[in-house]
């Protein structure tokens, strides 16, 4: 096949293209409406954070009155649907790694090893655990300066087969906790500032039978580890049947997302 035959072959692929009913005004109107919805959501979130802060402050105040020895539980969280007050993103100590392609590949292998270690510890009931080699946006995607690697963990439980996706992002390359919740506006989203200065964001999303529970850990060095549990192994060429619920808990996903070995 010559270069020209390749060009002809590609051109032939789109000969039978269906008619295009494109309306630029509808597209612009939809984009404007979506922007308005986002602004409204941010406004609602602002109001919610005030209510949530009051709701948290009141029990703490009452506990302090009733029991002088009471302390805030270590690791206690503030749950809101808005941003994390006082949390700066990108963080002051943000590190943007300038990795070569070889270093990115090495990191991908290291993350695979770390995931093999961390997953059985976080989810001890899982069997037949297999971890993919981490990569960028697509399988085998490694490039210089890459800031994102992800890999799937395949496993079985008593309920059936499922998967967890682990995504490691460096250099504060993901949106802030507040913006994450705005972007995931079709999911339930909660932001949980931690006492160590990090922030957890938990989103739960579903479509038809698919359920996805994602825990993101925002770290002071700009790394965000996002761990998503699914109710099926959708990473296989032939996905497994949907389970009635995700076979890993939020706590288990938090344990993975906060694992120090998962970083880049």
């Amino acid at each position: 096949m010559s270069e020209q035959e390749l060009r002809d072959g590609l051109a032939a692929l789109v000969v039978d293209e269906p008619p295009l009913n494109f309306d630029p005004d509808a597209l612009m109107a939809n984009a404007d409406a979506a922007a308005r919805r986002r602004r409204t959501l941010v406004g609602v979130s602002g109001a919610t954070v005030v209510i949530a802060a009051a709701a948290v402050a009141l029990p703490i105040t009452l506990r302090g009155v009733g029991n002088p020895n009471a302390q805030t539980t270590p690791g206690a969280v503030v749950t809101t649907t808005a941003g994390a007050p006082g949390f700066v993103w990108p963080p002051a100590h943000n590190k943007v790694p300038a990795l070569t392609v070889e270093q990115v590949e090495q990191t991908a292998h290291k993350l695979q090893t770390e995931a093999r270690r961390a997953f059985p510890r976080a989810v001890p009931t899982a069997t037949e655990v297999g971890v993919d080699l981490f990569a960028g946006e697509a399988e085998g995607d490694y490039h210089a300066g890459q800031l994102n690697l992800n890999g799937a963990v395949h496993f079985a439980t008593a309920q059936g087969r499922a998967a967890v996706d682990i995504e490691v992002n460096a250099g504060a390359s993901t949106p802030s906790p507040g913006k994450t919740c705005v972007h995931e506006s079709d999911a339930t989203c909660k932001i949980m500032p931690q006492q160590d200065g990090t922030v957890l964001v938990v989103t739960r999303w579903g479509q038809d039978q698919l359920q996805v529970l994602t825990v993101r850990h925002f770290r002071p060095d700009g790394v965000v580890v996002a761990v998503s549990g699914y109710n099926a192994d959708t990473f296989l060429p032939k996905p497994t049947p949907y389970l009635p619920r995700i076979p890993v808990t939020e706590k288990q996903l938090v344990a993975l997302a906060t694992d120090k070995g998962l970083t880049m």
């Binding site: 390749l6 590609l10 032939a12 692929l13 000969v15 946006e137 697509a138």
Partner: peptide
């Protein structure tokens, strides 16, 4: 025939390589 051959082959190659070919 050419179209089907190219399409099948194109969809079989990794995404970034497919993108650069396109």
């Amino acid at each position: 025939w050419t179209r089907d051959v190219v399409r099948t082959a194109l969809l079989a190659i990794p995404p970034k390589q497919r993108a650069v070919v396109v």
